[in-house]
Design a protein around this nucleic acid. Sequence first.
DNA 1: TTGAAAGCGATACCAG
DNA 2: CTGGTATCGCTTTCAA
Lengths: 373, 373
Amino acid sequence: MGKPPTTLRDIANALGTSIGSVHRALHDNPGVSPETKERVLQMARTLGYRPNLAARYLSSKKTLRISVNTLKGTTSFWDEVRAGIREEAASILLENMEIEFRTYPHLDEGEEEAFESAIADGVDGIITFPSRPQVLGPWIGRASHAGIPVVCVATDALHSGRLGVVSVDTLASGSIAADLMGRFLRGQEGSIAITLFDMAITEHAEKCAAFEKTLRSYYPNLRLLKPIEDHGVESEAYGNSRKVFEECSNLAGVYVMTEASIPVLNAARDANVLERLTVITTDLFSDLVPYIRSGAVAATIYQRPKAQGQTAFRMLHEFLAEGVNQSHQVALAPHLVMRGNLDFFLHRQSQESAKEQVDQQRETSHQLARDFA
Amino acid sequence: MGKPPTTLRDIANALGTSIGSVHRALHDNPGVSPETKERVLQMARTLGYRPNLAARYLSSKKTLRISVNTLKGTTSFWDEVRAGIREEAASILLENMEIEFRTYPHLDEGEEEAFESAIADGVDGIITFPSRPQVLGPWIGRASHAGIPVVCVATDALHSGRLGVVSVDTLASGSIAADLMGRFLRGQEGSIAITLFDMAITEHAEKCAAFEKTLRSYYPNLRLLKPIEDHGVESEAYGNSRKVFEECSNLAGVYVMTEASIPVLNAARDANVLERLTVITTDLFSDLVPYIRSGAVAATIYQRPKAQGQTAFRMLHEFLAEGVNQSHQVALAPHLVMRGNLDFFLHRQSQESAKEQVDQQRETSHQLARDFA
DNA sequence: TTGAAAGCGATACCAG
DNA sequence: CTGGTATCGCTTTCAA
């Protein structure tokens, strides 16, 4: 059935050279004549050589270190991303991965420093959240140039040289939000507001476009207002949305694309329009639960942070282990959370955090055992 | 930082015995005195021994064979499940897995035979779709008893001794369908029909209960009719649903929980009620596309067959490789497909089938190369 | 019942 | 620049 795979020795024999030279040639280590190197590469290709990862890992014993640079966050989003990464790392068979978490407290505090320290520490790969792609872009370029692959989560850093991105699909998110809005309002006329971080964030601009396109195609009775930007500042989210709530008399619905749904909901309540609005939010965290439960928030679009973390880790690991990565750009389909299935997702989240605690306890007990020895 | 992991030699040294005995004890191979066996097991535990899988794979070289027993299917569902399994198998680093697909054409044709032949061939594990749990249950029991782990996909076989199940979460599916139905109908009064395979299928009964619970809690204006059973037969689906369509004058919506949405849609059209019904279906396949596009189907609940396949494979592989499996029971959150995000999912499916073709071509060319050698 | 030793395929080092 | 070889941790076989 299956022919035995080609080994280094096979190549060496076929060429009448030594296994050491073959190895050096394949890894372009110093000390190989360009001629033999060429012959080896050629032969490796014709023989269809693929390294045996088990043997490689067994003999080299070097553990790959990756740095996970993320924001502390105001919601549980980043905790879930990190949990996904941790879980996926644990499920890798060859336990040759070490993860260092570099978590910074604010959008404009410590992001660059964390990146710099990761590079300085000589990690083998980085998973990062480029909160301000323009700022982090050059750093990512520097890392990539130094041979350190970088995977972005949640937000892309275009033209930065990053190995890949994992995020939620913007088309799927924006469109489903619009579809739901349209169906929920069922022919009613009115205006729709949307809030986002900043139109400079590619993902937000794309979601916005998708939302608008779907709304215009299928629900012409609804009119989209100019997007409200919050720049990640709660007071801006509150102030700007409240202004719209008070000025726009025929407002029928709001789609909150950012984390900052609570300030927007507060503004709606304070402006006395919460009752008559159809609200669709983004992501799922404890402060939002009562609003969903009561029906004030009709639905929330869950960006699956844990799945994003898992996927990012797999992507990086695949690249580090095999040198090839399947897909540089992964866009996940979001989940939809409403009153009825809310418990399913909450249950899942709490299960996760319980598992995390067990993991951490296990780590601690390992440590104790170690100190004791 | 990290203490070096415990090896067989460490255990042997600590006990003043040989590495061979330790190995035999750990695998309860014949030829170990119960006494030393006990001591080894004890020491292994206190030292926190975990086998080095790279070394194991490198030296043993035995490839694990698993059988995938599934239905041919009337929609693309099972193709996607198989694709997921294939993809996940390919992404495993240690390429020590061989997959045999046993696909049978009908619900009551070849299911048992496929299972029997898998056992007879001595596979190391089985992934199966127990279309009739009562019938397949004993077979699963037999396999488990013989040390062959079985993972069920899509439908559970309770009390059969199966290692685990992967399916879509029934609570999440049923509830979201009810929530959407309620919101889409927005206060309108009327009856809701649902169609399913058979109340004897646990998953269907659970979905049905979840649907009913959510409907009753939040949308008391809607009344749920007695479920329509189709038993996987298209003519039954058509006939039984048409009868309801003609008899129930205040019917407002239908939730189709099975694959058989087309016959139900045909019946609605023939009974001249399609226009005024809010229809929610299950899964996504090409015949359904025009209905979604036109809005006749308001939403469809996609059970993520590919993700089910991937998860099932991982579960089996984890067990086979490490002997422990994290979670025996995985329930995935379904995806929601509507007009706006339809293209996202279609694009994904077509990408997948394109990738499949490439894979198959590659397999073919390997075969050619092999024959040529 | 037990111990000893030969691999598995790659890495890394040392001698030529 | 190149060839040889010890080594990683485990499985497996052969002696004792």
